[in-house]
């Protein structure tokens, strides 16, 4: 079962998570331990990377229009900064006493804090990216809601012109997202729903065209044609709602899928 829900987050955090776990085990197994080496340089490298992340993070917060990102990201940055301070303190303490137990504990706490803070930050950023895809999905849903008021060929042409680019964008972004997910069931659900949307869209347009033609001829069958069109628009909407639901899943609760 994967721990991280996207391949990008996994590739960034998994190696360091393994290193930290290993250090914790080593620390527990060798409680007295050997003398710690001078960690000033590697700690300085972490501190520099943290300063850069905080700078980049603040710039992201300032330029973003996503209120949730603005709300959540500062706490993650503070967490990373606090963890870096713990590492600096540990390094200073180990310089004085390379066997210091409190320093070792600080070192582990700091490394864990960096891992957790970076993880929170990546999650904030990822959720914001997901919200962008969801906005695109909702735009398509808005267009689908308009399908039942289209009664002329001119309006249908405009409808297709409006819907096509949004649908292409949703298709590209959801496809990319599904490839990014580490959870196979989520990935397959996104692919299946997206395939349905892509299959249904030309059929919907065709049903709208048939409805308009029947309406023009003042035939009684227009009710049936409208029903068929509404059914197809409804099916597409259902698939898009399912895409939105799965896009927001980040947990691995298998019970949910039972």
């Amino acid at each position: 079962m994967p721990v991280f829900h996207t391949k990008t987050i996994e590739s960034i955090l998994e190696p360091v998570a393994q290193q930290v776990s290993r250090l914790v085990i080593l620390h527990e197994e060798a409680e007295d331990g050997n003398a710690m080496p001078d960690l000033e340089k590697p700690v300085l490298a972490v501190s520099r990377a943290v300063v850069n992340l905080v700078k980049v993070g603040r710039s992201t917060i300032e330029s973003s229009e996503d209120s949730l990102l603005k709300q959540d990201m500062p706490a993650a940055l503070l967490r990373v900064e606090a963890a870096a301070r713990l590492l600096e303190e540990a390094s200073s303490m180990l310089k004085v006493d390379p066997y210091s137990q409190p320093a070792r504990k600080k070192l582990i706490e700091g490394a864990r804090g960096i891992l957790q803070g970076t993880s929170s930050l990546l999650l904030c950023f990822d959720e914001s990216e997901v919200r962008k895809i969801i906005r695109e999905c909702k735009t398509v849903l808005d267009y689908l809601a308009v399908a039942e008021v289209i009664e002329t060929m001119e309006d249908l042409i405009q409808f297709v012109k409006d819907l096509s680019p949004c649908l292409t964008k949703v298709s590209r972004e959801v496809d990319h997202r599904s490839q990014e997910l580490t959870h196979q069931v989520h990935r397959e659900t996104l692919t299946r729903c997206l395939d349905s949307v892509k299959t249904l869209s030309p059929i919907l347009i065709c049903s709208m065209k048939i409805f308009i033609q029947i309406l023009r001829q003042h035939c009684r069958e227009s009710d049936e044609a409208a029903e068929n069109r509404n059914y197809l628009a409804g099916r597409m909407s259902d698939e898009l709602h399912e895409i939105i639901r799965v896009l927001q899943l980040t947990t691995y609760d298998e019970d949910e899928w039972d």
């Binding site: 960034i12 290193q19 930290v20 710690m36 990377a49 490394a111």
Partner: peptide, 29 residues
């Protein structure tokens, strides 16, 4: 994205630090 690159740098630096700290302990275990 720049923020992903910044996170990668932190992860790499932390990994190197933890590895350096772990090496001394490993000798004892």
């Amino acid at each position: 994205e720049i923020i992903l690159e910044a996170c990668k740098s932190i992860a790499a630096a932390t990994g190197a630090l933890v590895k350096a700290a772990g090496t001394a302990q490993r000798e004892l275990v």
